[in-house]
Write a protein that binds this DNA or RNA. Structure first.
Lengths: 122, 122
DNA sequence: CAAACAGTTGAACACTCACGCAACTGTATT
DNA sequence: AATACAGTTGCGTGAGTGTTCAACTGTTTG
């Protein structure tokens, strides 16, 4: 995230359509909501995480198997799973030494679908 | 994006559930599709771009007015509009000196909706 | 207890990127 | 032609981030 804190309320230009600005401003969701929205999409903006989430749609999987499936190290996968855990998109269960991950959000599939509609069209 | 080119096909661990890996692999979409999907969400992963797209849902707007609405410079807005143009999420029309931007993709609203469902829940 | 192994974590590094600045283009007005 | 102004763009910068490496935790097995 870039904009840390200070939020300048000025801009370097004149307003052209004051009414439109006022109208749009009343209709816009709160800043915080839009910020959370951007943060959610940030999770989906890395191809490794997308692949992990996509794989988990079909089956719960352990770290080793995900790493093998994607041809990456356990460490790299574990780091990304941490992000997915923190945003509560995945959950896990332990079975001996093995940790199995699975989806923890019924929206993941829907979010993918909407994106796919856009991607497949071009 | 990190993974530039070389795509190592090995991982540092043993496979635990070979069958599951094989099954999931057949069901997964092509790598390229998932990469494009991540790139699409990357556009939505910045709060400035989210705000711009959100504002344009209610009305077409010129650069000055968007800058005024968001309290940012014309330059910053113009930079982000460039990204949105390149991904064909917005289009523009010129009216004298003023350039009006508007949404160029009927999926934007749907993508927002799915994200909102997730965001509002916690 | 020791060895083996699945998984996690912190530091370091390379790379990406949003923003402001300043210089520029293009259009309208006088 | 000159001025004014909306918008764009290249550059520099500071902040963020995905991966690797190495050291670690936790569990199982001999």
């Amino acid at each position: 995230m870039r904009k840390t804190g200070y939020e300048i309320e000025t801009c370097d230009c004149n307003v052209i359509n004051e009414e439109i600005i006022a109208q749009v401003r009343t209709k816009m969701p709160d800043d915080e909501i839009l910020l959370n929205l951007a943060d959610l999409y940030k999770v989906f903006s890395d191809s490794t995480r997308v692949k992990i989430l996509c794989a988990l749609q079909y089956s719960e999987m352990c770290v080793c198997d995900i790493a093998s499936l994607l041809g990456m190290t356990k460490s790299a996968i574990s780091h990304q799973l941490r992000t997915l855990r923190q945003t509560r998109l995945v959950k896990y269960r332990r079975d001996g030494k093995v940790v199995y991950y699975s989806l923890d959000d019924e929206h993941v599939g829907n979010i993918f679908e909407q994106g796919m509609l856009h991607v497949r069209e071009r």
